[in-house]
Amino acid sequence: MGCFGSKCLKEPPGYENPAILAAETAFSVSEVEALYELFKKISSSVIDDGLIHKEEFQLALFRNSKRENLFADRVFDLFDVKRNGVIEFGEFVRSLSVFHPNSSFEDKVNFAFKLYDLRQTGFIEREEVEQMIVAILSESEMEVAAEVIEAILDKTFSEADTNMDGRIDHQEWTAYVLKNPSLMKIMTLPYLKDVTTCFPSFVFNSEVEDAS
């Protein structure tokens, strides 16, 4: 394929053709182009290199590039599919697609499982859930007695760990979220149905004729 004019020069490493990304995700070409406007904004906020670094991700999430958060770290790592410490545009679009209202429940359930499987062992272990509870409590500056944390863990595992081996496997997780669908609310971002309105400037850079 040729590379005409100046078009290729402004495309950073990791940039992917919006038409290909649209074909592989829940987004239309226009929506991918609108997401590129968001991506450019986030990826240029600290280091203007067309890649999202962890600091930039934290800045976009918390308005603070130094704020450390267990879950933001996990989300960043899952978005960074190539595991090279940065989120490229293609990774950004493919990962966000899981959060699209039209994406499958199965994709959302799988992503959430990976998110909570902190040590990536293929199971959500009791220690991992405890670590996450402690993180959320410290984030909200709530002091909760150790017995209360134990009681929350007992309740959760008595409901989710149906084979009682002390950890939640993928099948148990799927059954558990089907019984508790509210747990999947965080896996859908209504904004994603509306990205072209949020970032209307994409039309000035659009490569497709019908960008409506």
Binding site: L61, F71, I152, A160
Partner: peptide, 25 residues
């Protein structure tokens, strides 16, 4: 007191999981 909240309900309240912040201007 009986515990009524499960761990994942609690966890899903984390700001770090609130990706809608990415879209705030």
């Amino acid at each position: 007191k009986p515990v009524t909240m499960n761990a994942f309900e609690l966890i899903s309240m984390s700001q770090g999981l609130n990706l809608s912040n990415l879209f705030e201007k």
